[in-house]
Design a binder for these strands. Structure first.
Lengths: 188, 188, 188, 188
DNA sequence: CATGAATGAGCGTTCATTCAT
DNA sequence: GATGAATGAACGCTCATTCAT
C-alpha cells in the first residue's frame, strides 16, 4: 500500500459536502465540494464512486452522528420522561451546534437519491430511540397507533422545534422545552 | 402576468409541472414539463419567465388551493375543536385526493428556489387557519409559545399524518383521527 | 414548425465529422466536430442523439455514397469484366476525389461503435455490387467459395489499391489498373 | 528499455494489453491493462513511458512474432510456391492459435498512434517475407508493380482469409487453401 | 403568440500520468 | 522498483433560455 486512502481526506470531503450542500442544496457541483475540501476534482471519486454514493454515505453518517449524540449518556434506568427529554435535548443541541449538518441532513432526507438500503441503515442507527419511543407509546394515548407513526411524529416535531431554536437562538431553551412538552403531551 | 395569453395553457403547464415534479423532483427539465403540457419548449417561457418563477407560482397555487379547500365550509361559530377538525380533515382529504399535488407541494416546500416573498404570500393564504390556531392556542397549553410555532407544528403533524394515510389507505380514517388527536393534545 | 431542422446544418456536421475523424480518428471530440461545422456544441445533439449515432449514420452515408457512385452509369448488359472494371474504377475515383471520406470510412469501418444493424444496412447498399460479384464468381476459380469471401476479398483489394493510388497520385491510373488485374485474376 | 527491471512483469503487461485491447479496443484504460497484468496502475509506466509507447511496442512485438512464426522452418531452396504456402499457412495458424493476438494486431494496425518509425521496424521484421515476395513477383504478372504493393496485397488477402477462418473454424483449412489460391493467382 | 432549433455554460465522470510512500 | 492515491484536463451530454420563423 503506497499511499493509503487517507481517512483525513475522506473526512474533508464529507465536511465540505456538508457545508456546500447546506448552502447550495443537492444540486451543488462535485467540483465545488472537491475544491472546498482542498482536493482535486477527480480525487473525490477515489473516495466515492458516485455523487449518489457520497450523498448516501453523508446522509447515513449525519443521521448516525445525530442518533449517537442524542443517545450518549442515556441512563436506561431513569424515568421514561427523563430519558425522552435527554434524547430530545441532545438532539436539539446537536442541531444547534452544527447548523450546517442539520441543514444538510434536512436536504438529504428528502432527496430521491437516498436508497432504501441507506434509509434502512439509518433506521438501525435510530433503533435505540425507537425502542424508547416504543416504551413510551405503550402506556400513552398512542398505544394503538403504529410505532412508525410515533417515531415519525417525534421526528417531525423535533425538526420543527429545531428550526425555531435556530431561528431565534435567544429563545432556544424555551423553544426546546416547549417543543418537548408538545411531544410529551402528544405521546407520553 | 396579470392577463396571461391563455389561461388554459397556463393551467396545462401548471398541471403538467405538478405531475412531473411529483414524479421526478425539482430536477425535472422544463422541456419535459412543456411536453407533458402539450405545448412547445419555448412556450413555457412566455408564461413563466424562469423555471424558478414557475416553481414559485406553483408552490403558491398549491398551497393556496390546499388552504382554500381546508377552509371551505367552515362555520366560525362552531366549537373550536370542531372547526379545527374540519380544517384538519379537509386538508387530509385534499392530500389523499390529489397525491401528486401533495407530493409536488412537499418537494417545492423544501426547495431553495422558493423566495421569501412567495413564502410570505403562502402564509397569507393560510391566514384564516392561522387565526383559528391563534384562538385555539390562546387557551391551551401553548399559550406562551409564538403563534408561528403553533402553526409550524400543525403543519408538520399534518404532513406526517398525510404520509401515513397515503402509505396505508386502508387505515386512512384511523390515521386521520389519530393525527388530529395528537395535534389537539399538543395544542388544544 | 418554427425552424425546421436544417438539412444544411446536418450536412455541415456530417462533413465536419468526416474531416475531423479523418484527421484525428474516432477519438475526436464532438466539440471539435461541432466547431468545425460552425454550430454550437449542443446543436450536434439535436441532429444526432449520441456520438455513436453520428458515427453510425456517417458510416452508412459514406458507404452508401461510395456504392452509389461506384454503380452509377453501370450497364448491366455489358460484359462482366467491363462491369467489374466500371465499379472498380469508379470506387477508386471516389476515394481519390475525397481522400478524407475514404480515410474516415476506413476508421469507421473498424470501430466497435458500428452496430450490426448499421453494418447490415451498409451491406444492402452494396447489394448490387454483391450481385455482380456473384455472377463473376459463378464461372470463375472461386466458384466454390462463399460469396461473402469474394466480396471481402474485393473490398480488401480495393482498399489496398486505393491506398497506393493516394500515396502515389502520379501513378494512380497504373495502380488502379494493376489492382483490378489482381482482382480479376483472383476472381474473374 | 534495454534492460527492463523484470522481463517477467514486462511480458505480463504485454500479454494483458493484448487481451484487453483485443476485447475492448484501443480505448481500453491503462488501469485495466495493469490490473489484468497483476501489477499496479503506476507500474505500467515504469515499463512504458507512455500508453502510446506500449501500443507501439506491442504492435512491433506481435508483428514480429507473426513474421517469425511464419518464417520458421522455411527452406529457401524449395520451390517458390511451396515457400509461399509455407509462409501463408504458418501465418494463418498463428492467427488461429492466438485469436486475441490477431485481433489486437488488427486494432493496433489501424491506429494513428503507431509511429512511422514503428511501422518501418515492423517492415524490417517482415523483410524475409518481402524478399520471398520479391522473387515471386519478379516472374509473375505483377513484375511491373512496386514490391510494397505486392506485400500490401499479400497482407490484406491474408487478413481477409484469417477472418474467414476464425469465423468458420470448421472450414478453416478450406479457406486457408482458397485464400492462398487467390494470392497465388494474383501474384504468383 | 407559438414553435422548436440553437446556444453554450455546466455537470458528473474518466483516465493518462505523476509522485509520495 | 513497486504501489496506488492524487491530479486535472477532457469528454459526452443536458438543459434553461433565446430567437428566428
Amino acid at each position: 500500500m503506497a499511499k493509503p486512502k487517507s481517512e483525513e481526506k475522506r473526512n474533508a470531503i464529507m465536511a465540505a459536502a456538508t457545508r456546500v450542500i447546506a448552502a447550495q442544496g443537492l444540486g451543488a457541483p462535485t467540483a465545488t465540494i472537491a475544491q472546498e475540501a482542498g482536493v482535486a476534482n477527480g480525487t473525490l471519486f477515489t473516495y466515492f464512486e458516485t455523487k449518489a454514493d457520497l450523498i448516501n454515505e453523508l446522509y447515513l453518517e449525519l443521521k448516525t452522528e445525530m442518533a449517537t449524540t442524542a443517545l450518549d449518556g442515556l441512563r436506561e434506568s431513569a424515568d421514561l420522561r427523563k430519558q425522552a427529554f435527554h434524547v430530545w435535548k441532545r438532539s436539539m443541541n446537536w442541531g444547534m451546534a452544527s447548523p450546517e449538518k442539520r441543514r444538510a441532513l434536512c436536504q438529504l432526507g428528502v432527496s430521491d437519491e437516498i436508497t432504501p438500503a441507506t434509509r434502512s441503515q439509518a433506521h438501525q442507527a435510530m433503533a435505540p430511540v425507537a425502542e424508547l419511543m416504543e416504551r413510551i407509546r405503550a402506556d400513552g394515548p398512542m398505544r394503538n397507533a403504529p410505532m412508525s407513526f410515533v417515531v415519525a411524529i417525534m421526528e417531525s416535531l423535533s425538526e420543527t422545534t429545531m428550526d425555531f431554536m435556530i431561528r431565534e437562538p435567544g429563545n432556544a431553551d424555551k423553544h426546546c422545552k416547549a417543543g418537548f412538552d408538545v411531544f410529551w403531551r402528544a405521546v407520553g
